[in-house]
């Protein structure tokens, strides 16, 4: 085992990162759960999903975010929750990259679903920051997937 892995394989680190990631998901889910139509408008603005799927997506995704956020905070099914987190973050990253690639100035809709009037340049800058944040969250997720709690005597 290299020194780096020994350094990283710490229960206290894993627990803190997992709670932080969980909080991010709960905070992201809340405004969407409070106002589904705003989130639907946001998804519509991305112009990726076919119209018929937008509402379903707007209903389901925040629920999933809330549940895995709580699971991560409570330390329940950590690896399962981290797997869902991985999939979600990859989807978000792909959507934001697509918006940037096609020059679609959308409001991220990650945490605040009520779009404030901003210029296109500000929106594109915002999307780039969002992408950076997404990568950071992905790193935490991959760490949590990699992390194995130290085995105790008499364990499996």
């Amino acid at each position: 085992m290299s020194e780096l892995t020994t350094l990283l394989r710490r229960e206290w680190l894993a627990v803190r990162l997992q709670i932080a990631l969980g909080v991010v998901f709960v905070v992201a889910a809340w405004p969407k759960l409070m106002d589904p139509p705003s989130f639907a408008k946001n998804i519509w603005a991305y112009d990726i999903l076919p119209g018929q799927l937008i509402n379903l997506q707007a209903m389901i995704m925040p629920g999933v975010e809330l549940v895995i956020g709580l699971a991560l905070i409570l330390g329940f099914w950590r690896r399962g929750a981290a797997l869902v987190s991985l999939v979600l973050l990859l989807i978000f990253g792909a959507a934001v990259s697509w918006a940037l690639a096609t020059g679609n100035p959308v409001h991220c809709g990650c945490f605040d679903v009520h779009a404030a009037a901003r210029t296109d340049a500000q929106l594109f800058w915002g999307l780039k920051m969002v992408l950076l944040r997404d990568v950071g969250l992905l790193a935490i997720t991959i760490y949590l997937l990699w992390y194995d709690p130290p085995r105790r005597f008499g364990g499996r």
Partner: peptide
């Protein structure tokens, strides 16, 4: 999570 979202809506 999906069920929570649908019930919430």
């Amino acid at each position: 999570g999906g069920a929570v979202g649908l019930v919430n809506n």
